[in-house]
Nucleic acid binder design. Structure first.
Lengths: 181, 181
DNA sequence: GTCTATACTCTGATAGAC
DNA sequence: GTCTATCAGAGTATAGAC
């Protein structure tokens, strides 16, 4: 898995996989059909595993300004992890060759997170959010694209943009229309 | 170039490059140092070329609600183009192996677009945007992540989210605090 | 055309489970 | 003693960089 995440599908040789996992090549081929099957199952496994690690699918509760800020921070932390970045890189990089994996990732990670937040927005009508789904996308999307531009495209070595500024601006936009009561 | 964009770096053979470009392999090696050099120069070239096609680096002008909507639509159109999607896939997928390319992409495409919009926000104080740079990131980032989730991760085949809903929600958030005059 | 890398297979040997 | 899983390595056919 580490090898695939680091070198991508085409850049990974079965010899290296065997060496890294400490087993004989033959053993791998007795458990998995071929390279493609191994890759597919590994990515599937780690993607689903990520879901459980991340959001225990609990419903979100708490004061909007506190909870949303906390959520944003947790989100940035999780996605900033090197293993997570590599998973994203591989899924995006191989999305043409392995569209089912990309779709799995989309369903499991992206859509799940978005609807969790959308539900939260729906349960807080005082925020006056007319389209919770779209607003939830803006919330998560701003954070995802921040990680992409800073950590994946190494934009932080150019003009760095502090994470707090994104979070502050985002919360200001989302909360500015709520009832004062 | 088409071959690299479609199959990634490791997945591209020089034989195929030669066949696709209609020249002999030897000719390629007489013009470029090696596979890595060819790849680097091609991606550099198309990235820079994209900049000019996209935003002629003109300053943005016009009424916010009109201009921003128009800008968002144009943005979604450009990024939804298949060649553009493939460029993004390759740059992200190879960002560990070719960090300079990722950074070039970040500087040329991401940061340039962001500061163009930030400048526009700065020139419209009636919008009361306290952090133009961060807000510009939210604007572009929401659109980029929309394209990623819909077109790259094929999320549109799951729960589709109409582009208009994103744009509407985004404009509502950004414009809701402006002076009525 | 050359030389290397790679996906995948075949063989024979080793070791533990019952 | 048989069965099953594993291992190490040689071997094949093909693709690929140059």
């Amino acid at each position: 898995m580490q090898v695939f995440l680091r070198h991508g599908y085409a850049g990974t040789s079965m010899d290296r996989v065997a060496a890294a996992s400490g087993v004989a090549k033959q053993t791998i081929y007795s458990h998995f059909q071929d390279k493609e099957g191994l890759f597919t199952i590994l990515i599937e496994r780690i993607t689903i595993q990520r879901l459980q690690t991340e959001l225990g699918s609990e419903t979100l509760q708490g004061e909007p300004d506190v909870l949303l800020r906390q959520l944003a921070k947790a989100f940035l932390n999780k996605m900033g992890d090197e293993e997570y970045l590599n998973l994203f890189r591989v899924v995006v990089g191989e999305s043409v060759r392995f569209p089912e994996l990309a779709q799995l990732y989309s369903r499991i990670v992206v859509q799940r997170g978005r609807s969790l937040i959308a539900d939260y927005f729906r349960s807080h009508p005082e925020l006056h959010i007319s389209d919770p789904e779209a607003t939830a996308h803006i919330f998560t999307g701003s954070l995802v694209s921040y990680i992409i531009s800073q950590k994946i495209l190494y934009g932080e070595q150019g003009v760095a943009l502090a994470p707090n500024r994104i979070v502050d601006a985002l919360l200001q936009l989302i909360l500015q229309n709520r009832d004062s009561g």
